[in-house]
């Protein structure tokens, strides 16, 4: 269980995290989705007690992270797989973690086995690891203390499709046993395969939060026609709210049937008409991305 309340982090004039609140529930895999620079990593670092917030609170298992006794035994944190001493071997990295948490050395071998790092690879220095291997080492480290909560920043980065499937199975299993999982990603299709619940963040604020089903249901209708301007006018006459999407076409807050009726009445030729599916979420996400990209250019 992670609770974030009115969390804000400012760096000078720049607001990285802007008054966000949400709860990450046990038994579910929660995806933290947003374009690069949206504030995901900053928010996660605050949750793990590594960055002091400007205002607001974040608690894990009902306490501020820094008040957890031996936190590695409660929370598995992976914020950056590359943040390891390049001169230590993978096995040494895990051994140090196990020693600090006070758990048996045999756990190190077990975790190496869980993430499929061979004996020989574990004896190699981290500087010689590929990104995928570092990521697996990081996941092994996060699992080391048999935590109840996992906070993972872009854990699928560098994993191949088989690896992403593996991670989905692992996190599902973990949540199935009552664990709490928060994992971030900037890739929608990556996260929608793993997460039950989604928190979408853009420019430091939460733009959507709900179960995957809810978010998909709220996606409305996507419609394309030979004359989008005319269609937009016709929809407005019928007091249906529509807006242009970043990829062309209109996003309408109505069922496809209603939109089809309006178009038929006006004799507008439709080239595409479909209900909210993942594409709806994707449109929203793309707009978020292009929006923040525009801001970057403007700034």
């Amino acid at each position: 269980m992670i609770t974030v309340e009115r969390l804000t982090k400012r760096y000078g004039p720049f607001t990285a995290v802007d008054d966000i609140s949400f709860e990450v529930k046990p038994g579910l895999v929660t995806g933290f989705l947003g374009p690069n620079g949206a504030g995901k990593t900053t928010a996660m670092r605050i949750m793990a007690g590594l960055t002091p917030p400007t205002s607001g609170t974040a608690t894990v298992l009902g306490r501020p992270y820094s008040a957890l006794p031996n936190p590695g035994r409660h929370v598995g944190v992976l914020l950056d797989a590359s943040a390891q001493h390049a001169g230590r071997t993978g096995r040494e990295v895990l051994s140090l973690g196990a020693a600090l948490m006070g758990i048996d050395k045999s756990r190190v071998a077990e975790m190496l086995d869980v993430v499929g790092l061979t004996d020989k690879e574990a004896g190699r220095k981290v500087r010689n690891y590929s990104l995928g291997m570092r990521q697996r080492l990081g996941i092994a480290h996060a699992l080391l203390g048999d935590p109840e909560v996992m906070i993972l920043d872009e854990p699928a980065n560098g994993l191949d499709p088989a690896g992403i499937r593996w991670m989905r199975d692992l996190l599902r299993g973990f949540a199935g046993e009552g664990g709490t999982v928060l994992l971030s990603s900037h890739l929608l299709n990556e996260i929608e395969r793993v997460a039950d619940e989604l928190i979408v963040i853009g420019n430091g604020t939460i733009v959507a939060h709900g179960t995957k089903d809810e978010l998909l249901a709220g996606a409305g209708t996507l419609v394309r026609s030979t004359d989008d301007d005319a269609l937009m006018g016709a929809l407005a006459e019928g007091s249906l709210v529509s807006r242009r999407t970043a990829t062309g076409g209109l996003q309408v807050e109505a069922e496809p049937l209603e939109v089809g009726r309006v178009a038929a009445a006006k004799g507008i030729v439709l080239t595409e008409l479909r209900g909210g599916d993942t594409r709806g979420l994707e449109e929203m996400f793309l707009e978020l991305t292009s929006g923040s990209a525009r801001e970057e250019v403007a700034a």
Binding site: N70, R73, L100, E110, V114, L117, E121, L143, W166, D169
Partner: peptide, 29 residues
Amino acid sequence: AESALPTVAKMPSRLPGERPTTGIPFSRL
């Protein structure tokens, strides 16, 4: 040449005993 993840995710075993309620001793640190 690099090893791969197991095809089927193996769940890590549970550590025996209760989760710690006391912090890391200074000597261990």
